[in-house]
Simulated assay, not measured.
Amino acid sequence: MGLHEAAHSALHADDADGEYVRHRGIKETEAESVAYVSAGLLGLDTSTYSIGYIAGWSDCDPQVIKDTASRVLRCAHTFVEALTEPPVVEPVEATPRIDPADLDPSNLNPPRVGMDAAGALSL
């Protein structure tokens, strides 16, 4: 479902008002086809649901599938590349090692904090 809705967003977000209603069969065919192809490329089988959904919205017209194929494949590959692309990892500067011999022992013990008779903090 997430891939289907993402496909609507990627393919149809810039459509004119009313475009979805006038061409709902094509829009639904495209969105579910993107979900089906993307899922397949990611190793997931959604055919049990997707094939019937696509057949229904395309009126089982192979020409609808053919006419939408290039947009579907382009979008599906874009999604899969985005989902499988290794994350960019910024190099992290190593933290310098501290030699314990360089530490001043008087700084190793934090000061004691207490309260005076009036309830104020005192060192």
Rank of each mutant, 00 (worst) to 15 (best):
D59G: 04
E90Q: 09
A117W: 04
D15I: 02
H8Y: 10
G114F: 04
S33E: 12
D61T: 02
K66T: 05
Y20S: 05
A35W: 10
P100Q: 03
S70I: 12
A76K: 06
P87H: 06
D104F: 02
D14N: 15
V37F: 13
A13C: 10
S58Y: 06
V89Q: 12
A16S: 15
Y49A: 06
A6Q: 14
G40T: 05
D61M: 04
M115W: 03
T78Y: 11
T95K: 12
A39E: 10
S106G: 00
I98L: 12
L108K: 03
A76D: 03
P91Y: 01
A55S: 11
G2S: 14
I26R: 15
D104L: 09
S50W: 04
K66V: 05
R71M: 09
V113K: 10
R22F: 01
D14K: 15
L103T: 00
Y49C: 00
S58V: 04
V21P: 01
K66C: 01
S47L: 06
P110K: 08
D14F: 07
E30D: 11
D59Q: 14
L11F: 07
H12N: 12
A55R: 14
I26E: 14
D59V: 02
M115L: 14
A31M: 11
E32L: 12
I98V: 08
R74V: 02
I65K: 12
V64Y: 05
D17P: 04
T29V: 08
E28R: 11
E90S: 09
A117V: 03
S33P: 03
V34A: 11
Q63G: 02
I51N: 05
G2I: 14
L83G: 01
V21T: 11
M1K: 13
V72L: 08
E5A: 11
S58N: 08
K27F: 06
H4I: 08
